[in-house]
């Protein structure tokens, strides 16, 4: 029983990271139908930049406050340079395009930070044991910050005029433009949100899961799988799906074999695409896909 709780708990923490990355996928796809494969790279970039900032002597909090806007800026800049010039964007074009950008970003990170994986220092707090379950204080930070960011993003998309106007762009691009919503601004905001969730994921996860030039690849893949659970359009399902994926991975590793851990995400992806291509929520949409 303790084992089960232990596996579930550490899975939830790992899954929160997947969930945050998944939010980024949805934040963009819900607005522009762009599958942004650079998403995982935001996390890797944020982790590495924060490690360098701390290494340069900045206090952890200051480093984080500096790095997050930096990564948001990079996300927006990459969008302006690579997505904006494309006149007719289809999901396929976006996949090919962002795959290329992600490869380039990885190469740049490899050149700047070298090939070794590094970790941020732990956030303040001490580890504890609760009913036989060992809880790392960093995992509590991950869960807490993850929940906060997820709540903020969902609230932004569903309850603010700016957020609603983003979704209007996706559903009725021409009508949205007629009432004065600029698709261009909408795209920039969407990429900024994606950069933000990616950066948070990369920073809170770095002390436990480390950051390296290539850590964005597996984060991106797993975040993408979590996002497909919500048909790439539901923020809630993406976040919860990410957490569920983390738990499922841990349970498979614990009770079957740890060798299967990384296969879990792909099996889930195949099953979702076969049986619920519009996501678990199951709404079929004539407009989408």
């Amino acid at each position: 029983m303790t084992d089960l709780l232990q596996l579930v708990f550490s899975g939830l923490a790992q899954g929160t990271i997947y969930g945050l990355v998944a939010l980024g996928f949805v934040a963009i796809f819900a607005v522009r139908e762009i599958v942004n494969l650079v998403q995982g790279e935001y996390a890797a970039l944020a982790g590495l930049a924060a490690i360098s900032a701390v290494g340069a002597g900045l206090p952890l909090l200051v480093a984080i406050v500096c790095v997050i806007p930096l990564v948001v800026g990079v996300a927006v800049l990459l969008e302006r340079m690579t997505i904006a010039p494309v006149k007719k964007m289809t999901p396929l074009t976006s996949i090919i395009l962002t795959l290329g950008v992600s490869t380039a970003v990885k190469a740049v990170m490899l050149l700047i930070w070298g090939p070794e994986a590094k970790g941020l220092p732990n956030f303040p707090g001490s580890d504890m044991t609760l009913g036989g379950v060992s809880i790392r204080s960093q995992e509590l930070w991950v869960l807490g910050i993850g929940a906060l960011v997820a709540y903020a993003v969902i609230w932004f998309y569903e309850h603010t005029v700016r957020g609603k106007s983003l979704r209007a762009c996706a559903e009725q691009p021409i009508a949205a433009r007629l009432v004065g919503i600029s698709p261009r601004t909408a795209t920039v905001v969407a990429f900024a949100v994606a950069g933000f969730t990616g950066a948070v994921a990369g920073i809170v996860g770095s002390p436990i899961y480390l950051s390296s030039w290539q850590s964005g690849l597996s984060l991106g893949l797993k975040g993408f799988v979590a996002a497909t659970l919500g048909g790439l359009t539901s923020l809630r399902v993406a976040m919860i799906g990410g957490m569920a994926l983390g738990v499922l991975e841990n349970l498979v590793a614990g009770y079957l074999s740890s060798g299967y851990r990384d296969a879990v995400a792909f099996v889930v992806l195949v099953l979702v695409l076969l049986f619920r291509p519009n996501g678990l929520a199951g709404k079929t949409s004539a407009v989408r896909v």
């Binding site: 690579t82 494309v86 395009l97 795959l99 290329g100």
Partner: peptide
């Protein structure tokens, strides 16, 4: 855009 993507991939 495809050409750009391939070019970027080549850079790695």
């Amino acid at each position: 855009s495809m050409g750009l993507a391939i070019g970027l991939a080549g850079s790695l």
